[in-house]
Design a protein around this nucleic acid. Structure first.
Length: 217
DNA sequence: CACCAGGGTGGTT
DNA sequence: AACCACCATGGT
């Protein structure tokens, strides 16, 4: 297995963005999680700000708002038609569940299956919401982590998600560490070479060099 | 001009 | 179960 604590330390040694998922409240985190799908955070920030300016970034308001009005505010985040419909539906779901406070009282596994019922919330978004909005100790498995893990294996083999979850969970303990770990993985992933199968050609290869030494037999 | 970004869904083999 | 097209704007 891969010892991700060494990966963590390696990535953490490099200076990077500090407070990673800035938001005023839990709902803003959840909205951001939906908007950031297949989009840059930069474009999501603009959309969130435009929602705020219109006073729409509140559950009850968004729940009542016209889809067309939501669309016009989030265009910068891309896929604005489906995302607008999903945001409105998301607000309706939260209202139907008795609000964020009520949801916060649910056990993690139960909350996860609830989130997965929401249209537009898949495994990754659900885990990001659990970790960043509800502060649950959850491993977020995304494309960056998969690629990183495959590069830490001897011949760039794909690592099953279940193994990734298990390995990260056993080496990265606690909400704050899991929080920082996912942030580090994403930040590193952005600058990591995607085309080469090996890390030798990458601009940032320090991680993969040390990372390979972190492999168990 | 092509390619990509902190995915998910629905349809086809 | 493994692909596939699609969603759409903004940056490089």
């Amino acid at each position: 297995m891969i010892r991700f604590n060494e990966v963590y330390e390696t990535l953490n040694a490099k200076p990077g963005p500090q407070h990673w998922w800035p938001a005023d409240d839990q709902f803003e985190v959840i909205v951001g999680a939906m908007l950031v799908q297949r989009t840059t955070w930069r474009n999501v920030e603009l959309a969130i700000q435009r929602l705020k300016d219109a006073g729409m970034l509140q559950i009850e308001v968004l729940h009542r708002e016209r889809v067309a009005a939501i669309q016009s505010r989030i265009k910068s985040a891309g896929f604005f038609r489906i995302k607008a419909a999903r945001l409105k539906n998301l607000a309706a779901f939260i209202v139907g569940q008795g609000g964020i406070t009520a949801l916060s009282k649910r056990p993690t596994s139960e909350l996860r299956s609830l989130l997965l019922q929401i249209d537009g919330v898949g495994p990754e978004t659900a885990d990001a919401i659990l970790l960043y909005a509800f502060a649950r100790p959850v491993v977020v498995v995304d494309a960056y982590l998969r690629r990183l893990a495959s590069r830490l294996t001897a011949s760039d083999e794909a690592v099953p998600d279940a193994s990734l979850r298990e390995w990260v969970a056993t080496t990265i303990k606690g909400v704050s560490r899991l929080n920082a770990f996912h942030a580090l993985v994403v930040e590193h992933g952005k600058s990591q070479c995607k085309k080469r199968p090996r890390c030798a050609q990458c601009k940032i290869n320090a991680l993969c060099q040390t990372g390979r030494a972190a492999l168990d037999a």
